[in-house]
Design a protein around this nucleic acid. Structure first.
Length: 947
DNA sequence: CGGATCACG
DNA sequence: GACGTACGTGATCCGA
């Protein structure tokens, strides 16, 4: 008998690489091969190998892979997995590398034609269990959860390495509401859209779990349908019984496959250094390579991997590799954190923070909305693993539990405030705007601050692709830069209806989560801040973005007053009008249908009513967008219904998105609407606005403008709107150095008219409108087909116009070529103030993808410079007004080229010239433009009237 | 949760 | 020779 129980680890390699691919940045090795998923896979094996000596660690280990896409399940059901999309282009070359990586670790790698990895895993797991071994399946695939459980003391459990979570019977019961043996029955009912397993149509995980838990088996659940009272569910159970029974077969794992390699051969003791070292070297995983020599644990990060964008891009690509070595930080250790429950300990931490001069801070609250959330606790970090959590409003898990001991909230803030406002103590946040707003509502001012989210944005905007690895949230940053996955909020509080407020999380758990966030923030700061100077991000961070954080925070707290009664009245009018339009539309169509459903509308118009001009898109659905309906409206037969649908759309959009939604957004405490601006929302450096979005309030139609009339000042005040006139075209004139355009702006000419003169020789309504379209087309990166579509001319004619434009304004073409050349060379574009936007796909082999990046790259310096300028104006605005003794002016909103203020009527005359000057001079002294920046200012008793 | 649509600069 | 056509956002609805 072996002295230690045998323990087999079965790694579900195939499912792992898909998850790794989607979660890791698109890294490439020195040869340019994409290796993001391989890197993730390698670190995962590394961690497992690290556990070789551990008590619960593996004695035997094998990786199981899918051989090909077909299996015996396709014989039962040909559509099995038929919906699977092809793997992404830059993942495909990584599949063979996964095998290489496995061999590099000298581990067995098992795959078998006609069998899926799941079946091999099931068969190996059962065989090992029969021999009395323990088994751990390294996967998070829910299908495999069927296997979990114990037979004669031999356990099968699962390990989700991405979440660092063990999965055993309680976790399965939590997820499925039934024991592991019944998981297959639940899966058969609910189906699986990814694998294309039908299940019962209309039955999801909730209903499936409930039915199986109630009846004890699939058959019993299906049989019970007979006795159910009449319902949709009953019908569906009866009608689709066959589907469920076939699904049951599909989800059943084959547990008796022949085992291609005997269990004994999977024994491991120590990973030999070769060929692992050669593999790590070949793919540039040097930080792992270094660890191999020292024999220490898993890596913090791979620091010589190149972002795919910077591939062969000269010095830019080496930036990460050249960055200063990080102080060697110990692994995150959640058990090291302190829960601060007494005044003495709190004072101790405050004193330590003051002498440390740098402290990472994070607040925990009861809600996501900074204007409504209540403070629940604060965490601090002074170094790696040197962190604490200060609970301030934790209650028991229910009203009968006693509250845990904690420092009283006011007292705690009194102790912390001097430190938080101490000019010699830097407070580091992740998205500090949120914490600033929460603390400000408790009367606590915080300065000076640093912000890791903004640091990341200023260094890496645009670096991800299609949402992969490009974000600036804490969890993503931690994984990307620290190689560590922090506890997720939902792991602590749950999600959906079962979610509990943070204040009810037990203190030990709350401390692990909250203090870790401060710890991670502290570490990220150490990592990101040094990169600024090396990579040229200091200016934009220090001069533009960081100063803006408290300014935007204050704007959010100000909010804006809306006239609720007025909105309600509009809602009512829109409701009446849409109802009557809907009736008319049904009458014309000769049938009732959901006007709001593009699918139904398309079928009614182009099938039932037989109108021509129906075009189906990718989804196989008719397009019914504005342009289609406008064309239909030109047709005598089509006009009546098309016009009414257009009108219906217009009104129902205004009602649902604005008049209804804005009323609901009024904050009960302040009576005003508080948007939330994202400082990292747009890759170009613009702000974005959410909850509600106040940057897309209607203005282009008279009906829509009524909504603007509901944005009003407090009595005795007015609203003042100041906007940059044609700022992007002015910047284009400057950046492309176009004399004609610069001269026109210097003379205060109407730029579209001037363009019309240059291009068509005369200014008429028509030529001016065309010129305007062309001017914008230039800013957005032009194509003859795009312009042709907009102007409703032939592509040839559009090309002539583009040629003429380039001839008349010669700098433009040069600007476009030069911009693209530098972006291709260095991987990113830059604004006049040095803000970078990365374009990882600028060299894509996919033409559409590449051209899309090119258009974005042409636009980004212009849109981004404009964003820089208004941000600089915002940061200077209130101090400038205060210097002039105007302390009652409140800055409320920013809409890309416009600022909205609320101020006493009597201050308008004095404030207007100051606002104008600050905006006009915002580029100075860093940048001296060749064109003046003109500002239009208006005031009025509503936002509409101020225009 | 993705697609279609439409509101803004 | 085919591809798919203007940049940047966010909210709502539908339908799976």
């Amino acid at each position: 008998m072996a002295d230690q129980k045998q323990h087999l680890y079965l790694v579900d390699g195939s499912s792992y690489i898909f998850r790794a691919y989607h979660r890791l940045p698109p890294l490439t090795d020195p040869e340019g091969t994409p290796v993001g998923a391989v890197y993730g896979y390698t670190t995962m094996l590394w961690k497992l190998a690290d556990d070789l000596d551990a008590a619960h660690g593996p004695t035997h280990l094998a990786v199981i892979l899918d051989k090909d896409s077909k299996s015996f399940r396709n014989d039962i059901y040909p559509e099995y997995k038929a919906n699977r999309p092809e793997p992404p282009e830059d993942l495909r070359p990584q599949f063979p590398l996964i095998r290489d990586a496995t061999r590099a670790f000298s581990l067995p790698c098992i795959e078998e034609a006609g069998l899926e990895a799941d079946d091999l895993i099931a068969s190996y797991a059962r065989e090992a269990q029969r021999q009395g071994w323990n088994v751990t399946i390294v996967s998070s695939d829910k299908d495999l959860m069927q296997l979990i459980g114990e037979v004669d003391g031999a356990r099968i459990d699962m390990l989700d390495t991405m979440k660092s979570a063990r999965i055993y019977i309680p976790e399965v019961e939590e997820k499925f509401g039934v024991a592991p043996e019944l998981v297959g029955d639940v899966l058969a009912l609910m189906g699986d859209s990814v694998d294309n397993i039908p299940g019962i149509y209309g039955v999801g995980p909730k209903t499936a779990s409930k039915l199986i838990a109630e009846h004890g088996s699939l058959t019993a659940a299906l049989d019970s349908a007979e006795d159910m009272k009449k319902s949709k569910l009953k019908e569906r159970l009866l009608e689709h019984r066959d589907d469920a029974e076939m699904s049951r077969v599909l989800v059943t794992l084959k547990e008796d496959c022949d085992l291609p390699q005997p269990l004994e051969e999977m024994q491991i003791e120590k990973i030999p250094e070769e060929p692992l070292a050669a593999f790590l070297e070949k793919h540039g995983f040097t930080s792992l390579l270094k660890r191999l020599g020292t024999g220490s644990g898993s890596p913090e990060r791979a620091n010589n991997l190149h972002p795919a964008a910077a591939e062969k891009a000269g010095d830019a690509g080496d930036v990460e590799g050249n960055s200063q070595p990080l102080p060697d930080m110990p692994k995150i250790d959640r058990s090291a954190y302190e829960t601060v429950q007494t005044e003495d300990r709190l004072k101790h931490w405050a004193e330590r923070a003051i002498s440390a001069r740098l402290v990472a801070v994070d607040t925990e609250t009861s809600a996501l909305d900074a204007m409504r959330a209540e403070l629940v606790g604060i965490s601090l970090a002074l170094g790696p693993n040197d962190a604490c959590y200060i609970p301030l409003a934790h209650g028991g898990s229910d009203m009968f539990d006693e509250k845990p001991e904690q420092v009283e909230l006011e007292k705690a803030l009194e102790i912390l405030s001097p430190m938080l406002s101490d000019a010699s103590v830097t407070k580091v946040f992740q998205n500090g705007k949120y914490d600033l707003n929460v603390l400000a509502r408790y009367g606590v001012e915080v300065a000076p601050i640093e912000d890791t989210m903004i640091l990341s944005f200023d260094l890496d905007a645009g670096r991800g692709q299609d949402g992969i690895g490009g974000g600036h949230g804490m969890d993503e940053l931690s994984e990307r830069h620290l190689g560590h996955q922090p506890l997720a909020f939902k792991d602590v509080c749950g999600t959906g209806k079962k979610a509990i407020p943070f204040g009810q999380v037990p203190l030990d758990r709350a401390t692990e989560y909250a203090a870790e966030d401060a710890d991670v923030t502290w570490r990220l700061y150490q990592h990101l801040k040094p990169r600024l100077a090396i990579e040229g991000g200091t200016k934009v961070y220090e001069r533009v973005d960081r100063p803006l954080i408290p300014v935007v925070a204050q704007m959010e707290r100000e909010g804006i007053k809306v006239d609720r009664a007025r909105l309600a009245k509009l809602s009512e009018e829109f409701a009446t009008e849409t109802a009557s339009l809907e009736k008319d539309i049904h009458e014309i169509a000769g049938q009732e249908f959901a006007v709001g459903s593009p699918k139904q509308l398309g079928e009614v118009l182009f099938n039932e009513m037989g109108f021509k001009g129906g075009k189906k898109g990718k989804s196989g659905q008719y397009s019914t967008d504005q342009s289609v309906l406008e064309n239909l409206a030109k047709d005598e037969e089509g006009a009546p219904i098309a016009k009414k649908v257009l009108e219906w759309r217009h009104l129902s959009k205004l009602k649902s998105t604005y008049t209804d939604a804005l009323q609901a957004q009024i904050n009960p405490d302040t009576g005003r609407v508080h948007t939330s601006y994202s400082l990292v929302g747009a890759q170009t450096g613009r702000l974005s606005s959410t909850d509600p979005n106040l940057q897309n309030i209607p203005i282009r139609t008279a009906i829509g403008r009524q909504i603007r009339e509901a944005f009003v000042p407090e009595s005795g005040n007015v609203l003042l709107a100041a906007d940059y006139s044609q700022i992007e075209l002015r910047l284009a004139a400057h950046m492309a150095d176009v004399d004609t355009l610069k001269e026109a702006f210097a003379n205060g000419e109407d730029i579209h008219s001037r363009t019309a003169t240059e291009m068509f020789g005369e200014v008429t309504r028509d030529t001016r409108a065309r010129a305007k379209t062309i001017n914008f087309a230039i800013l957005y990166g032009i194509s003859r087909w795009g312009l042709a579509g907009r102007l409703e001319v032939e592509p040839d004619e559009a090309q002539d116009m583009i040629d003429t434009y380039f001839k008349r304004f010669p700098g433009i073409q040069r600007y476009i070529m030069e911009t693209l050349e530098t972006v291709r060379e260095q991987g990113y574009s830059e604004t006049l103030f040095g803000r970078k936007t990365w374009f990882p796909r600028i060299k894509s082999k996919n033409q559409a993808e590449r051209q899309g990046s090119e258009r974005a790259a042409i636009n980004a310096p212009i849109q981004g410079t404009s964003a820089d300028i208004i941000k600089r104006a915002m940061a200077r605005m209130l101090p400038a007004l205060e210097d002039a003794g105007l302390s009652d002016v409140r800055m409320l909103l920013q809409v890309h080229d416009e600022l909205v203020f609320e101020l006493p009527e009597g201050d308008v005359a004095a404030a207007s010239p100051i606002i104008e000057r600050v905006m006009a001079e915002a580029a100075l002294p860093a940048v001296e433009l060749d064109v003046p920046l003109a500002i239009d200012i208006g005031t009025g008793a509503s936002w509409d009237a101020a225009h």
